[in-house]
Design a protein around this nucleic acid. Structure first.
Lengths: 343, 343
DNA sequence: CGCTTTTATGAAAACATTTGCAATACTATT
DNA sequence: AATAGTATTGCAAATGTTTTCATAAAAGCG
């Protein structure tokens, strides 16, 4: 009769069933080398029989690790985040952690709220995307001093550890490539930059090159488009119909660039003969599309994996320090750009 | 100094700082209407001053909800899962839950392991993808009787609640469309079906139509391709080079279909004039690509959202019962299919 | 002004586990 | 056989919170 309802067994039920004390059962999980193999076998049998599953919540109360890493992303519904999230997740799971994930839809106030929630769950570490966060967010992280890594951006002066690429350099690289091909009439399509330092940095990088070479871009050729193939496609079509005829388009990311390519296909504009298009990101699909997209490669998988390793390292260490890892970007020449005619 | 190190405050520190008892502070969080507004204000100030963050682990020990929902996916690195995960996540966060997410890479044994881990964290509910799971997995869920919802597939005889489309119907729909256009020489490209009931059901659905109409597909025209545009593209190229000349291709999902379209573009095969291609899924990007992909729409967003609502409902109820929601699939006619010439 | 309700608070038990310490039982050594 | 280790186990305290119950203060009422 001491057998409780299934699915409700706790450690003392197991202890009773195995005729040992609760301490021994606990030790059996946490320091198996301290318990007699014979006893261990008895306990294992009892555990299996009762279907006992230990309670991490109760463990976490003892100042032990909770075994979770909090991950805060703007959204997972973007190819690029999915990729980085997956490799980050694999990386921390490897070390036995589970991911507690939330998203905030590019709202920095909501980011603060979800961070608090993650801390309520006593995550052992926090990973977030980018380095632009509200002051409250940074303060909270510092005050709770929970290990933290920012994924996606690199900045030598970051307030927390970071693993990422220099988006500024990526922006420069895209612009340099286009100008190097002789283009002077260039359009730009970038996502909204508020609350998105990745996009902002890329844009700044591109501008810096344009400025250096004395290229000006008419106001009407600076497009803003959300992260959506359809919207970018529409934006470019609109631009064309307005009579604009740039010879090249610098796109803030590959999704936008894909939209631009499709718009050109639809408008009968030949890529790259009439219009060169360069993206940033090198997303899955950019290689396979026809024509294959020229883009600046950002090593999302490496970034996710390394970020995972870093956070695990910080969690394990008792005096974690800020580390910064820079992953290099690289221009990938494919079929959507070419030197301007007559050059 | 009774002021502890920052970031370490617990409920009794707050109580001390506010000159009340711990019980009152606790009540302040859980039943604010029971505490005097003036006291509440004092407590709020103390909380802010000490940077106190409540400990869900300790709450969870009281048989209270942990406030987390476990989500087990094969991988997030696929457009389609990213979409469903995002809407599921939004949906449960709306109700105040946080997602504890793990992936298993299509390995059903690993799925069981991560399920156990999720249960150790005392998730309030479990969501998993598809209805094909190991016996151990089903047993564990039943034994622990934790609310559970299977996302993505619908089956009237499912052992757990489910929200999804009938993949069998989707497969039939794709095949019916192709045969309805007069095609008799058809190839099929599907992902591996082991451990992937979604793909298996679609394939079975397509076969059932083919069989009914007495169409046979040569062994060499039944391709298997992973979920990758590049691999599918290569597979179709290979098929073509081997001399095969089907007039239509039924693809197990849109990613494969995209690969097929790109392969055709590359090979100079005109779509849809020489080759009709139909996908399943209607992923983001399928509409915008040129030519736009004809496909069977599976409402991923609705599925994710509804699944979220269902799991929240089950968690709230104390006698949850199995519910099954079927989301209808729908053929979306676009530009990659047409009636066979001479018809 | 005494009596009954109502409102606000605190004390202590409970939750499921870990761990330091002490006790017991073996084993090896002389 | 006595001694000193060593291996194994149990007891009890501790962890941070919620909740039940009890108490005190305030308010309503005739």
């Amino acid at each position: 009769m001491s057998l409780k309802q299934s699915g409700k067994a706790d450690i003392v039920d197991v202890a009773r069933a195995a005729k040992v004390s609760a301490s021994t059962v606990s030790r059996c999980f946490n320091h198996p080398e301290l318990v007699n193999p014979a006893t261990r076998k008895k306990i294992d049998r009892a555990i299996a029989r009762l279907g006992y599953i230990r309670n991490r919540a109760a463990q976490a109360m003892h100042g032990k690790r909770s075994g979770t890493i909090g991950l805060i992303v703007p959204t997972i519904n973007h190819a690029i985040f999915a990729e980085v999230v997956q490799s980050f997740s694999d990386s921390v799971e490897e070390a036995g952690f589970t991911i507690l994930m939330t998203s905030h839809g590019y709202d920095l106030d909501r980011e603060y709220d979800v961070l608090r929630k993650l801390l309520e769950h006593r995550v052992d570490g926090i990973a977030l995307i980018g380095l632009e966060h509200s002051e409250k967010t940074y303060t909270l992280i510092a005050q709770q001093d929970v290990p933290c890594v920012a994924i996606w951006n690199h900045d030598a002066a970051s307030r927390v550890s970071c693993v990422g690429a220099e988006n500024f350099a990526a922006g420069r690289m895209a612009a340099e490539h286009i100008l190097g091909l002789g283009h002077r009439e260039v359009g730009m399509i970038f996502p909204q930059t508020a609350g998105n330092d990745r996009a902002q940095d890329r844009l700044d990088g591109a501008w810096s090159v344009l400025d250096e070479q004395g290229i000006t871009v008419p106001e009407a050729w600076r497009l803003e488009s959300p992260y959506s193939v359809a919207m970018a496609k529409a934006a470019v079509e609109e631009l064309w119909r307005s009579g604009a005829r740039p010879t090249a388009l610098i796109c803030g990311n590959d999704v936008i660039a894909q939209g631009a390519v499709y718009a050109a296909l639809k408008l009968g504009v030949r890529v790259p003969e009439d219009l060169s298009i360069v993206g940033i990101g090198n997303f899955k699909g950019s290689l396979e599309m026809e024509p294959a997209l020229t883009t600046v490669h950002i090593p999302a998988q490496d970034i996710g994996r390394i970020a995972g390793e870093e956070i695990v390292k910080s969690v394990a260490s008792d005096a974690p320090e800020i580390t910064r890892v820079r992953c290099d970007v690289e221009l990938v020449l494919r079929a959507t750009t070419r030197a301007i005619a007559g050059r």
